[in-house]
Design a protein around this nucleic acid. Sequence first.
DNA 1: CGGTTGTTTGATACCCGTCAAGTACAGTGG
DNA 2: CCACTGTACTTGACGGGTATCAAACAACCG
Lengths: 246, 246
Amino acid sequence: MLSLTGAPGAHARPCVHERDHGSCAECRVRLVSVCAALTGEELDELEALSQPLHLAPRQALFGQGDRAGAVYNVTEGMVRLSRLLPDGRRHVMGFAMVGDFLGLALPEHHDVTAEALGPTVLCRFEKRAFGDLVKAKPHLLQRLLDRAGYELSLAHDHMTLLSRRTAEEKVASFLLSLRERYARIGQTSVTVALPMGRQDIADHLGLTIETVSRLLTRLDREKALLIVPGGVRLVDLDRLRDLAAA
Amino acid sequence: MLSLTGAPGAHARPCVHERDHGSCAECRVRLVSVCAALTGEELDELEALSQPLHLAPRQALFGQGDRAGAVYNVTEGMVRLSRLLPDGRRHVMGFAMVGDFLGLALPEHHDVTAEALGPTVLCRFEKRAFGDLVKAKPHLLQRLLDRAGYELSLAHDHMTLLSRRTAEEKVASFLLSLRERYARIGQTSVTVALPMGRQDIADHLGLTIETVSRLLTRLDREKALLIVPGGVRLVDLDRLRDLAAA
DNA sequence: CGGTTGTTTGATACCCGTCAAGTACAGTGG
DNA sequence: CCACTGTACTTGACGGGTATCAAACAACCG
């Protein structure tokens, strides 16, 4: 769903290519992404496969059921991952942010729909070529497995969140985990951007939009947070942690 | 948390070893498990690493926070995977059944507690040795990644289930998915064994034990299923599928 | 038999989903 | 500058589903 296994392995090399999206070596998300597994030369190989991809707000990257022709690395913006249920309801599986990898397990068909929430930039890797590279580099494969394990643990965390009793716990927990994810990519501010809408949050937490709105308003009134344009400012972290009960 | 990627690749070879748990080659769960990635000779290598492990009902395999010293393959019985939340509540992440693999991502520490529900038998692989084998066999690594992808999709399914509105949908959906998993390991009967208790089911679905009990009783009264000792018989599958709304 | 554990059943309270209306804001065009 | 429109969000009233509290029942084992 998301990801940030960030295990350094630095390698500060100047960019030797002239590509509109800069080189992998100087990529700002490299160290928190799968690519951290690669050394200098290997990065060049990877870079040769990468294609920059810009998405406008609300633009779809791929849809549930589509053949998976590529894998992606988010370098800017945020992507919403959702599923449409047979009865018309929607479930938002998660939000992929900077550094997150899409198509981890190289599935035949995507089981979710991916859509940009705001202006978003991704690194696109043709599946075939990426698969070949993976085959040739077992440590990259190992890295993918690590990341899969990480995403699995995130999925478990979210399952736990969903099974929580009250809506307040869910909302507080969601905001805190989002903040934590921002922190891992360098955004340590207590102001958490919410590029997704209330409906998205509701569908993510298994609540209704009204409940989400009400709770945010309540938390604002109680001065646990402050609703600001485009996000929230987590004023009283301890209070929120209390409410999240985790 | 479970798994059944069952992709054949047969290799019917007679057992040449004298071990109390039989050889990997004739293992009944091999084809549905990670081991299906291996050929005859490689199976021998794997077999040399495996240790049979018998658990009594309610016996713990490992606990949340323990150092992960090994990985396991369930060959008989069922294992409950749960987490204890800070506030004392418990969340049952899932149930590992025959063919399922524990410790997939080779984590440093287990993030869940694993306990046998009934008499259970597992194949134990020392983590170090297993890790070495994996390093030497990229296609086994690939297989692990496939399986991780599968478990991720199961986790997503369960997230979807948890975010469903009514308790009835959850229970019906749970029973159907359990039946499906039994089917993949050869148990195609409409009678679904429930080695776990009502409380386990409740903690798995984010409900209370009373609600689970009440709903099972109701579904029984409505003749959608029949409660039998140790499980349920799914009498009216269509009805249940209707209720599960999926 | 009595003790323990697990399950079922009942009565009540309350959280949250539903339905409905109102507000805020951006964009568009006059 | 101001209506008009659409979208997103907020707020209110109400009812239903589920949690909670409580107790009875069943199964098992000493």
